[in-house]
Write a protein that binds this DNA or RNA. Sequence first.
DNA 1: TTGAAAGCGATACCAG
DNA 2: CTGGTATCGCTTTCAA
Lengths: 344, 344
Amino acid sequence: MSNSRMTVREIARLAGVSVATVSRVSNGTGQVSEEMRRRVLEAIEKHGYRPDHLGRALAAGRHGALGLVFPGLSGPYFTELIQGFESEGVPSRASVHILCTHLRSDSDDQALEMGRRVDGMAVIGGTISDHALLRLAEIVPVVVVAGEGPGDIASVRAENVASTAALTRHLLVDHDLRDLVFVGNPEGSPDVSERWAGFRQAHHDLGIAPPNEPVATGLQQADGVLAAERLLAGHLPQPGAVVCANDETALGMLVGALGRGLRVPQDLVITGFDDVPTAALVTPALTTVRQPVRELAAEAARLILGAVGQPGSTPTGSLVLPTELVLRSSCGCPASPPTGGTRT
Amino acid sequence: MSNSRMTVREIARLAGVSVATVSRVSNGTGQVSEEMRRRVLEAIEKHGYRPDHLGRALAAGRHGALGLVFPGLSGPYFTELIQGFESEGVPSRASVHILCTHLRSDSDDQALEMGRRVDGMAVIGGTISDHALLRLAEIVPVVVVAGEGPGDIASVRAENVASTAALTRHLLVDHDLRDLVFVGNPEGSPDVSERWAGFRQAHHDLGIAPPNEPVATGLQQADGVLAAERLLAGHLPQPGAVVCANDETALGMLVGALGRGLRVPQDLVITGFDDVPTAALVTPALTTVRQPVRELAAEAARLILGAVGQPGSTPTGSLVLPTELVLRSSCGCPASPPTGGTRT
DNA sequence: TTGAAAGCGATACCAG
DNA sequence: CTGGTATCGCTTTCAA
């Protein structure tokens, strides 16, 4: 019944009409008499005809697809990102291509190649070179997510500096902690770089001696566990608090600390960033900064989709979404804070 | 310099040759004189021409893309899966489309829609209906990953039953544990269903009273933390060991237990499944079953790619990849076992 | 070796 | 309303 080798021409022949009429019926465009419509619909139904995507795309000059380029790190952050992006594409019937550059050296070329297969792209900050980004923007609408692009390429990101500074200040002032250490690699991504900046800024603003170099590590949970080992096992002076670049690392750090018999927050204060689902559930619950990841991705998709129509109109401007300080017990705050968070 | 609006015709005109020659040069097919080749290459270079993907795909009758359908759960498992799949596609210059059904009701339709945009698809077991799978197989080569398809649709999965049974037996016999509880929802996915079966089988084989109903929960870390609450907070009889459906849940359970002041494995034994990176790093290290997730995805991609050439030749047969029992300390085994694991 | 022309599958303009 | 036909960008016979 459903032969997938059906074409407009075949259906037209079978229904005894022209291809133009078939096209009109299958797209609901133009005016078609009831009689014709019935005949065509019947033939379509009977043979299970579905217009070929390639033919349609070629004629329309659109791929009906969006691209997403990310480094390929695992974890809830990226999954959330993908889903936010993808769900925004659904209404526009745009499918999503993904590309995990995964530290490969030919990432630039691959991204460029993807640029010829989609109508627009979102690129996570720090995954490909600025040069490639610029070239990409000549081909399709591009927006940088969680980072900043060169030139006036649009970007969507979360507020990092002020919120991390607020978090750090909270530790320094409200809990009177000292010797904080930052866990994360500022070189690794724009996000971490900004958080590290906020961390230092808080120290500076309060006239407190600048912190030591960060413990440069990855953003996965395993990296957090490893960092815990490096930080807590040795005979080094124990830190007063550990400010992690994201929740995953913080969670890894928490497991590492707990597994070592340390009490959190009594023996060690730990904070994260993101507010992933697990953060609120662990004991002690993780103090962190909530970031609207899904929104970030959705906003990026919207920006791109909006520019797809007008040729040459790559979106511009940079959008910074607000974040929210979420005080829980891993920093020493009472278990049930009066409010879910403080707007930054 | 690099106008993206270049077409074969333009280049042909500019180089003073025919479109056929341009095509031959840009694809390296056929015989072209050195002189012509030089002229064409020059024009291509000068104007930054790159053949349009749509035109090429339409002419070739191929999309140059593969599809991956998954439920949309977060975590290292799926990321690993995506990357394994994607990296296998790269050599064949096939890009990857993804679709997170995310429990949506129209998943079947969306998957079918995707079927018309790719050359082949991998579908995670349990994400779409058998009916849809069958229809999909009429359109493109399909393989089910981590599950079993209807009819003779190919499938690639890891060995679940025997390995979970071996793990359970280890707990029951070597550690003389009783009152084990299984955490995971057998209805949720084929994988979990098989693991639950292995869990029961071990009890049966040893003539031990069958276990209680499983604690049906999701596969994310947060679900594990929640399960810990449900299981450990009440006044219910405490379980002798918790066999989790995957590492993520187990890790969540571990944090939950540790955060409650329980000692693992002295007060509670916890095991997982997958052997994600974090599993080996936490304290105590997690006893689990190693599963070759990346290989699973790569194998699926290979199967699909192999069938793309021959029309109508959907791959068949089911491949079951071996898993490996990894004994670490969360079950009570000594911290450094002599061997990394035992082949199942 | 090279070029003219016929598709690939669908859309849309322009007459009728 | 309906049908013929040019077009989208590229590949690939088929002759020359």
